[in-house]
Simulated assay, not measured.
Amino acid sequence: MSRTISFLIEPQFDGMKIYDYLRKEQHLSYRLITSLKHISEGIELNGVHARTIDHVKAGDVLSVTMPPNKNNSEVSDIAVPIVYDDEDVLIYNKPADMNCHQSRRVQNDTLANVFAAYCCEHNLSLTFRCINRLDKNTSGLVLLAKNQHAAALLKNAAQKEYLAVVHGVPAQKTGMVDAPISRINDIYTKRQIDINGQPAVTHYELLAEGEGYSLIRLKLETGRTHQIRVHMACIGHPLAGDDMYGGDTSIIKRQALHCSRMIFTSPISGKLVDATAALPEDMQKALESARIYRQYE
């Protein structure tokens, strides 16, 4: 199914070229505009095919129609909860032990395969566009864009919160870790603190503490691979279950990390979306094992 978006031209844009309006005012990518030029109904002005060099007038209706994209992924029958869904975006509550993307070694039962099943069910042909990829063993909210324009507008636009169970209790109830991160080598996926690495900033807040563990909330300024895991380990509080970075697996068998909240404006409808996902059962049990009973916000 194609996605058509229409724009009512306001007086201040009178006389502007269609290309400039789409690129500068509506933030369509150069690649998308170029592809629309070669589709008969790709760009229309007042219902008539238009060129990017044509000019708009106040009161005109400019429409762009993005064609469906082919989805070649095999479908998966695994049920993953959908937290939010509209014409342009979808949010899943991904379980642990599930990859977001397919890879050479993993072709089935990824979130991409789950999305392929969703597309079949709704008679859609959409590419899997994951805005915030989570590690295989990190659970929680994953945002997908259903078209190229939404994907471009959503880049770095969502505010995300994570909950984690960590070893020990941070000395400060709130804190920030500002430490660059790099990959150890081209073969191993493990990351490290490296003065020459990519900038990375993590903010944390202590929510509750128990016997040898604590529950923290985290917000990121950057989105580096393994950022939370590396940063908490570097300040002496590795995630419970995260044996790659020094965590113990006695109360949970995977890194105790969950994307619990996501706030953003749906890119085309303009609707404010505030999505949440409760802690999964294994993290709830980890809290019980650590005797962390105090309620958190």
Rank of each mutant, 00 (worst) to 15 (best):
M176P: 00
D242E: 06
H27L: 10
V177G: 00
R104L: 12
L36T: 10
D14S: 13
G47M: 05
V166F: 07
S182C: 08
A58P: 01
V273N: 01
K136R: 14
V169K: 14
H122N: 13
I53W: 11
K17M: 10
T34W: 08
M176R: 12
D97I: 03
Y296N: 04
K94S: 07
D85A: 08
T189Q: 05
L111E: 11
L257N: 06
E209M: 00
G270P: 09
P68W: 01
I216G: 00
P199E: 15
A208Q: 07
S63C: 10
I228H: 05
L141P: 02
S139A: 11
D97G: 00
S103K: 02
V75D: 03
G247I: 11
A240S: 12
T189E: 09
G42Q: 03
Q172N: 08
E25H: 11
V169H: 03
Q227T: 07
E10G: 10
R261D: 01
A157N: 12
V89M: 12
T4R: 07
L134P: 08
A117K: 13
C100I: 13
G15S: 10
C259I: 05
L239F: 10
F13R: 12
R3V: 09
N123A: 13
I33L: 05
S40G: 01
L257S: 02
Q107I: 10
Q172A: 11
V230L: 02
K136M: 10
I263V: 15
I131P: 05
R133Y: 08
A152R: 13
L126Y: 12
T110I: 14
V89W: 05
R23I: 06
L153V: 03
V114F: 08
A171Y: 03
V169A: 03
A179F: 05
T110N: 04
